[in-house]
């Protein structure tokens, strides 16, 4: 005869295992804030991301098939009826959710949460089931339907710190993890354990002409990002889904409200 199952233990286990990445606390908690009041929709971030992360130019046909790859994109929202219309921009990138739906879906654990609060994707491990892209409510995961090549001499401008992805691999924004790694490396050389605020600047943040974006460690209360994210204008996209995103948007303020 079997003894009774201790349900509390089972629930504890369930809670433990259902937590993406198995981290209760993050070493760093990389966070980005985007001030929509400052965003002009110039797409400098999109271009910077393209250059930094070896994103392919997919071409007109592929774009029409909705197979473009842009780790950050500018979404346009029109408000009101013509002629009284307003245009709002939202730069949309991987939200690095602390409770990421995509991480629960991957059958081979190619995407997981690391100790820095980053939702990461290992390209070698990915087998291209595209389940994560289905689970992502923000639609920010991109699949390589083809192996893209760069014509000479354009392959010379590829970033050596970022691998060139092949056909059949899912990819997405990494918060420029190669720059985070570089900053940590430099910090170690200086004999510091921690990276200072402002040392890690992703390509999109660096390129923003209106400085609408800021990036930093929200575990550090003195960092710029910690102060900005507590603004009363701050909100998270699709917060009601309990994905706990690491990207905080600051609401646009209309002068007529």
């Amino acid at each position: 005869m079997r003894s009774e199952v201790d349900m509390s233990n089972v629930l504890d286990k369930l809670r433990e295992y259902s937590k993406p990445g198995y981290y209760d606390e993050f070493d760093y908690h990389w966070t980005m804030t985007i001030d929509l009041d400052r965003c002009t929709g110039c797409e400098a971030c999109v271009v910077a991301c393209q250059a930094e992360n070896n994103l392919p130019i997919v071409g007109e046909e592929r774009y029409a098939e909705a197979r473009e790859i842009k780790w950050i994109r500018i979404e346009r929202y029109w408000e009101g009826e013509f002629p009284d219309v307003k245009l709002n921009f939202i730069p949309m990138l991987c939200q690095h959710c602390d409770e990421a739906p995509c991480e629960t879906a991957c059958p081979v654990f190619a995407t997981y949460h690391n100790q820095d609060g980053l939702n990461t994707q290992i390209y070698n491990r990915c087998i291209g089931t595209r389940t994560c892209a289905v689970y992502c409510p923000y639609e920010v995961r991109y699949f390589n339907w083809f192996t893209y090549t760069w014509d000479e001499p354009l392959e010379q401008q590829l970033n050596p710190d970022v691998s060139v992805r092949e056909k059949g691999v899912m990819e997405k924004c990494t918060f420029c993890i190669q720059r985070i790694r570089m900053a940590k490396d430099n910090a170690k050389d200086d004999g510091r354990r921690r990276v200072r605020d402002g040392e890690v600047v992703p390509a999109c943040v660096q390129s923003c002409p209106t400085e609408a974006m800021s990036f930093g460690d929200s575990n550090d209360p003195d960092s710029k990002v910690s102060q900005v994210m507590n603004s009363p204008r701050g909100y998270k996209v699709l917060e009601e889904l309990n994905t706990v995103p690491s990207v905080i948007y600051l609401k646009k303020v209309h002068d007529d409200v």
Partner: peptide, 11 residues
């Protein structure tokens, strides 16, 4: 430190 994190070595 973080030696077993995938992104320590993968890129």
């Amino acid at each position: 430190e973080n030696g077993r994190d995938c992104w320590t070595c993968h890129k």
